[in-house]
Amino acid sequence: MIDIVVHPNIYYFASIVLFLIGFYILLTHPNLIKKVIGLNVMDSAIFFFFVAVGFVSDGGSPIVEAGSEALTVNPVPSGLMLTGIVVSVSVTAFALAIIIKVYQHYGTINVEEIYVVRSEREC
């Protein structure tokens, strides 16, 4: 494979960029489903960060064959990220379930419109 000389911190940099874009989506979009997507982008950026922490250039997969002592990447962060992905998916599923309920009660999933509906009711 072709190698080019870039600083290896590109992984961390990229994960932080993705995190910030996800946070941007979460903050600026009033649509709740878009917010969920933003949340997921944030989470996967963090998982990417963890995988990058464990990544060793030229390391093999952490699958141990009997008797081999090849250089492998650190398996601990990726093991942790399995749990992380699970947690993120369950949060997503739960959020979507509640979003459907919000739609049933307010008729919209736009946060600004929900605030309008709520303030109308209180007046």
Binding site: F19, L26, L32, L39, V87, F94, A95, I98, V102, R118
Partner: peptide
């Protein structure tokens, strides 16, 4: 399940998920 609880819970869920994300980071 009613109008107030679904709104409160979606609000709490998003904010708490952001909090967890930053803890994980």
């Amino acid at each position: 399940e009613n109008r107030d609880t679904v709104f409160a819970s979606i609000k709490y869920l998003f904010l708490t998920a952001v909090g967890s994300s930053s803890v994980l980071f």
